[in-house]
């Protein structure tokens, strides 16, 4: 079954010989077509207008859809960013004034636990962003973290104030 494939190309060439007047025929056909098109210029304009309008409308009506879903997420994200920044700042100032390693360790663990909770609720929020309970849970989690850090610093400040009065019994 061995065969020289070069022969195949030769055979192909023989089959596809163009007729002598093929150029003239092609030019004639081309002229005919261009005349037909030019007879309906308004169709072109209408088509362009239609496309433009379709794109315009779809863009116009798509916008409110985006607004419907994204503001909650955007608002929570902004809230989260603001709070996380504040929490970080409060943490830094807390460890700067706390001289009790056990206390710092307990707060660190507490904040880590709260962060784990937050991630869990955050995943729920991504699935269904208009759930009021989830939104409340996110807000409360961040508020709790910030509040406990502020409270303990206030507590330490009171404990560290210079002794003004000294009494052993009342």
């Amino acid at each position: 079954m061995k065969r020289d494939i070069r022969n195949l190309f030769k055979e192909e060439d023989d089959l596809k010989t163009l007729p002598k007047n093929h150029r003239t025929e092609f030019l004639e056909k081309l002229n005919k077509q261009s005349k037909q098109k030019s007879s309906f210029p308004w169709l072109k304009i209408a088509a362009v207008l239609l496309i433009a309008l379709t794109i315009g409308f779809s863009l116009f009506y798509d916008k409110p859809e985006e607004v419907k879903t994204s503001p909650i997420v955007a608002q929570i994200e902004a809230f989260e960013a603001e709070y996380l920044k504040d929490i970080e700042t409060e943490w830094e100032s807390f460890i700067a004034i706390a001289d009790d390693e056990i206390l710092v360790g307990r707060f660190k663990k507490k904040l880590e636990d709260l962060d784990v909770d937050y991630q869990e609720v955050s995943t729920q929020f991504k699935n269904e962003s208009d759930n009021i309970i989830t939104i409340e849970a996110l807000v409360e989690n961040l508020q709790t973290r910030l509040q406990i850090l502020k409270d303990i610093q206030e507590h330490i400040k009171i404990l560290n104030q210079k002794n003004e009065h000294y009494e052993k019994s009342i």
Binding site: V67, P71, I72, A74, Q75, D130, I132, I135
Partner: peptide, 14 residues
């Protein structure tokens, strides 16, 4: 944006 969020949340809360 903020107002729309508030309104939606308001519906949920109230």
């Amino acid at each position: 944006m903020k107002n729309q969020f508030k309104i939606l949340l308001l519906i949920l809360i109230t």
